[in-house]
Computed example of a mutant assay.
Amino acid sequence: MRARSGTSIAISAGRFPRKKRPCARSVPIDASHAFANSTRARMRAWGNTRRPTVPLITWRDADGREISANVASGTNLMRAACDAGVPGIHGDCGGALACATCHVATDPVWAERLGPPGPLEDEMLDMVDGERTPTSRLSCQILASEELEGLILIVPPAVL
């Protein structure tokens, strides 16, 4: 049978109702079941309730103004500050640890959580404009993670 021009023929896929299969939660998770050891099966079995969080990071300038942003895990905080429009964070080297234009200070409690600067970062911190504090860091060397939720970084006045 030929179709006239300008008309279309709808062909149904003819799907038949499938048998209901037991959901993954009813399948026992053990080594004898090949599919049970896959990540997808474990996520289904446990309801996949854990969702990655995006930490909220705050930058505070010398005048006390604050800019906060949710930063994706794995992003360096210099890039996040530039994206958020934080004044005083320039990142001239693009995060290559070749300048100190992303200098920030942290609260002593957060300094312990972040750990000490690496040897190259320590050398670059000697070149910062203004005063270097014991909690000084280069924000390009700090990567966002869930553990940094609520971190406050202080942008020193000399950088502004």
Rank of each mutant, 00 (worst) to 15 (best):
A62D: 14
R4Q: 13
C82A: 04
P116N: 08
T49D: 09
I154P: 01
S26I: 03
N76L: 04
H103R: 04
N48A: 15
D61K: 14
P87R: 13
W110Q: 12
H90Q: 10
T58I: 05
E112L: 15
L77Q: 04
G85K: 03
V128Y: 00
L153S: 04
T75G: 06
R51L: 12
L114A: 02
D30R: 09
G64Y: 02
D92R: 00
P17E: 07
A24L: 11
G64L: 03
A72T: 13
T39N: 11
V104P: 08
E66R: 11
C99N: 02
V155T: 08
G74I: 10
R51G: 02
E112F: 15
V54N: 12
C23G: 05
D92M: 05
R4G: 13
I142Y: 09
A100E: 01
A158L: 06
T75D: 14
A158N: 06
M124W: 00
N76A: 04
A3Y: 07
M1N: 15
T101M: 07
A100Q: 00
V109A: 15
N70L: 10
S32M: 03
E121P: 05
L120Q: 08
A62N: 13
W46L: 09
T49N: 09
I29W: 10
D129V: 09
V159T: 09
G130Q: 15
I9P: 06
L148I: 04
C102K: 03
R60N: 10
G85D: 04
G47F: 07
A34T: 01
A98F: 04
T49I: 13
W110D: 12
T75C: 12
P87M: 12
L160Y: 05
V27K: 04
